Amino acid sequence: MAKLELINLNKTYDPKTIPVKDLSLTVADNEFLTLVGPSGCGKSTILRLISGLEQPTRGEVRIGDQPVTNVGAGDRNIAMVFQSYALYPHMNVFDNMASSLKLRKINTSEIKQRVEDTAKLLGLEKLLDRKPGKLSGGQRQRVALGRALVRNPDVFLLDEPLSNLDALLREQVRADLKQIFAKQNAPVVYVTHDQVEAMTLSSRVAVLNDGILQQLDAPPNIYAHPANRFVAGFIGSPQMNLFTLNCEGDRALLGDVKIPLPGGFAPPPEIDLGIRPEHVSIASSSDHAAESTGETNNSVKVQGRIFLVENLGMSNLLSVNVQGANNSEHIIRALLPVEQTWDGEEITLSLAIDKLHWFHAQTGEAIGSV
């Protein structure tokens, strides 16, 4: 099989519309790369550039060390699965899966073998005689996936293939996809706006915003070490708490509490602080002695007033209003076990110092930890 390389890829429609800006990345054999980001960030355009459905304004696409930028879409041996199933309604499952092979004039016995092997892999062997109108949404998506798998392509491209499925079915098919592509040797590029899909399916995740690659890394590293404020806020549910704080010397002010800044740089007048809701807890009674300073060896204590509680089933999401000097106000969300209780609206929260994320207030880039 072959690796996929994108080298300084650009796509410009007009001076104000540049969906892809100087993108360079490599997807190895048997690697599952997910492109994730908000609507309009360039994800689907990148897929169209890889497939040959669009030509880049500048840059190069290579498959297996061979440049294919000027090769037509039909000659790239790329399989693409779209958001819509795009099945032929008058054909049964077998003929839908075999359609691309027939166009390539592969012999009948090999077509039969490939379709039957793929149908078994996808659990479709008993549905080969049915037409799409008699299939469920999940079964139709499997047929669309099967049509791609039978081709034995050099590269798989998937453009939000689960977005038309309901939540329960999406979870089931997502698990199936992970197992199916673990057995494939070709590079897989998957596009989604759903960060859960990105985190659970991928070998690596490419986070995009405004056509620019923000971070490319393994899912755990994307989550634990976001490269900038955008990645920190986009990846994770519930969303990371993010604040712009004033600084006094080597401390940042959160409400009336002074939090030590990371070392190694001149203290700025402002800095951005982030902490995930799951790293915020209710201060224990043994910690109350530290409340006068707001700081212990491994956590920071802040006081606030609860104004919203959201029951998420296994946990409660608390929104807490923290007041500071000069009428400053910050909302901190804490994700707590559903069995945990608290007294009244006033609450003291504990923020784990080793889970704090710091970012430049102007550039948004990560600047280290305490």
Rank of each mutant, 00 (worst) to 15 (best):
Pro56Leu: 09
Lys183Pro: 04
Phe307Ile: 04
Ile332Tyr: 00
Ile18Lys: 05
Val322Ala: 09
Asn311Ile: 12
Lys183Tyr: 05
Ile106Leu: 15
Thr57Val: 11
Arg76Pro: 14
Gln172Val: 06
Val68Asp: 02
Thr108Val: 10
Val338Glu: 08
Val115Ala: 12
Val115Ser: 10
Gln141Met: 08
Glu54Lys: 05
Ser109Phe: 01
Ala252Cys: 13
Leu103Trp: 00
Glu339Pro: 00
Ala224Ile: 15
Ser136Met: 01
Tyr190Thr: 10
Thr348Leu: 08
Glu160Pro: 02
Gln179Lys: 12
Leu165Asn: 09
Lys183Cys: 06
Ala28Val: 08
Tyr223Gln: 09
Glu31Lys: 15
Ser237Gln: 13
Arg174Glu: 13
Gly294His: 06
Phe82Val: 14
Leu349Met: 14
Asn209Gln: 07
Gly233Thr: 03
Thr192Glu: 09
Val338Arg: 13
Lys11Thr: 06
Gln214Gly: 05
Lys183Ser: 13
Asn8Ile: 05
Glu197Arg: 11
Arg130Ser: 04
Phe359Leu: 04
Pro337Ser: 08
Asn297Gly: 13
Cys247Gln: 10
Gln55Tyr: 09
Ser163His: 11
His225Ser: 10
Ile18Arg: 05
Ser203Pro: 10
Val189Lys: 02
Asp256Ala: 05
Arg251Gln: 14
Arg229Phe: 11
Ala198Asn: 08
Gln214Lys: 04
Ile46Gln: 08
Leu33Ser: 09
Leu47Asn: 03
Asp250Pro: 11
Glu60Ser: 13
His90Ala: 12
Gln139Met: 03
Gly236Ile: 11
Gln362Asp: 12
Asn107Glu: 14
Glu110Val: 15
Ser299Arg: 06
Gln184Lys: 15
Gly133Ala: 00
Asp166Gln: 11
Lys120Asn: 06
Thr363Arg: 00
Phe94Asn: 01
Pro38Asn: 11
Val338Thr: 15
Gln239Asp: 15
Asn30Arg: 15
Gly40Gln: 07
Leu128Asp: 09
Met91Ser: 00
Ser328Phe: 02
Gln66Gly: 00
Tyr85Leu: 04
Arg333Phe: 02
Leu35Ile: 03
Glu295Asn: 12
Ala167Lys: 00
Ser24Tyr: 07
Leu87Ile: 07
Leu254Met: 11
Leu356Asn: 09
Ile235Pro: 07
Gly137Met: 15
Pro89Gln: 12
Ala98Gly: 01
Leu336Asn: 00
Asp29Ala: 07
Asn297Ile: 10
Val257Ser: 10
Thr341Lys: 14
Leu168Ser: 14
Lys11Leu: 04
Val71Thr: 15
Leu53Cys: 03
Glu365Ile: 11
Asn77Thr: 06
Pro277Ala: 08
Lys102Glu: 04
Asn228Pro: 08
Val302Ser: 06
Pro267Tyr: 13
Thr34Ile: 07
Glu345Ala: 05
Gln215Gly: 02
Arg142Ala: 05
Asn246Arg: 08
Leu253Glu: 15
Gln113Asn: 14
Ile63Lys: 01
Asp217Tyr: 01
Phe94Pro: 02
Thr200Ala: 15
Asp22Pro: 09
Asp343Cys: 02
Ile332Gln: 03
